[in-house]
Every structure is written in C-alpha cells, then in structure tokens.
C-alpha cells in the first residue's frame, strides 16, 4: 500500500518544526526558506496549515520537464527532482497547479518534496501529529487529487 502525508491543520500550532526538519534533511541547515513544506499562518482564523506536494497522479511537473529531471520514485510514488539533470528552466514551477515546486536561486535548480525516500522528516518532527505518514486511503488525498483532475484544464 502506498503511503502519503496526511495533514490535519486543526492540530497544527505553527511551530515550524517540520520546516526545520525538512531543510536540515535536505540541505544540512535549519532554514525554513529552503523547506519543501511550508506552514501557512492565518492569524485572524487562528489557523496554521502545513502545505506541501501531494505527489499527485497527474505529475504536472514531471510531464512539463523538458529534460526528464523529475521522475517517480517507484517505492514511494514521490515525484523526485534529479538535481544533476535539472537545468533550472522553471517550467515545472508554473506547470504545477499546486505551486509546490519552487526554484532555488542558490542552486539554480528546483526543489520539491520527495517524501524523504519513504521516511518523511516533517512527519517525524511534528510534535502534534498534524502531519502523519499513512496509507494513502486515509488521507483524503484522493479527494485532493480528484480536485486536481477535475479542476485543471487537461485531464
């Protein structure tokens, strides 16, 4: 059974431990600006929403890439950027309707969530279980994906 990140904003306190875990895992520094998961703050609603790639089936980013720099990790289903191949053209950043592929000036390449190869650091770091890594059926992700399929122009 494939697993996915389940995000429950109700539980999130906005501590950003996930952002730090993500940037430390991928970049070796604590640097929320380089995290592939971002906690959005809605102060007036007292609401914090961790947000990252859903590893959608459409894989807009992967399809748009002109040099096959994004591929699917067979084990996790994650769409993974191969830094060595990425030319930094950024087409994937506009192709992804979720906005979860970001260009990183420091590297000249793009970065996105890769599920840490099946052991996501954000989920482990979250002190409130607002982010968990669970069987895909549980996540409501299917709904999210259905939305993507329906909503975006071509499916």
């Amino acid at each position: 059974m494939q697993r996915s990140l389940m995000i429950e904003p109700v539980k999130c306190t906005g501590c950003k431990q996930c952002e730090m875990a993500c940037s430390m895992t991928h970049e070796g520094v604590f640097n929320p600006a380089r995290s592939r998961i971002r906690v959005f703050e809605f102060h007036a609603e007292a609401r914090f929403v961790p947000y990252t790639c859903t590893q959608c089936a459409q894989a807009w980013c992967q399809q748009a890439c002109p040099v096959e720099a994004i591929s699917v990790d067979a084990a996790t289903g994650a769409k993974v950027v191969k830094e060595a191949r990425c030319v930094g053209c950024k087409v994937c950043t506009i192709a992804c309707p979720f906005g979860t592929v970001n260009y990183v000036r420091a590297t000249g390449k793009v970065a996105k969530c890769d599920l840490c190869g099946g052991d996501p650091a954000c989920a482990k770091a979250c002190p409130t279980q607002a982010i968990t890594y669970v069987d895909s059926d549980w996540t409501g992700l299917e709904r999210m994906r259905a939305w993507a399929a329906k909503a975006t122009a071509t499916a």
């Binding site: 971002r38 192709a95 992804c96 906005g99």
Partner: peptide, 8 residues
C-alpha cells in the same frame, strides 16, 4: 515562491 498556484 509557489508561482504555480497562479495556474491553479
């Protein structure tokens, strides 16, 4: 960041 959201 998140420029793709415009498309979405």
């Amino acid at each position: 960041p998140h420029v793709g959201m415009v498309r979405g």
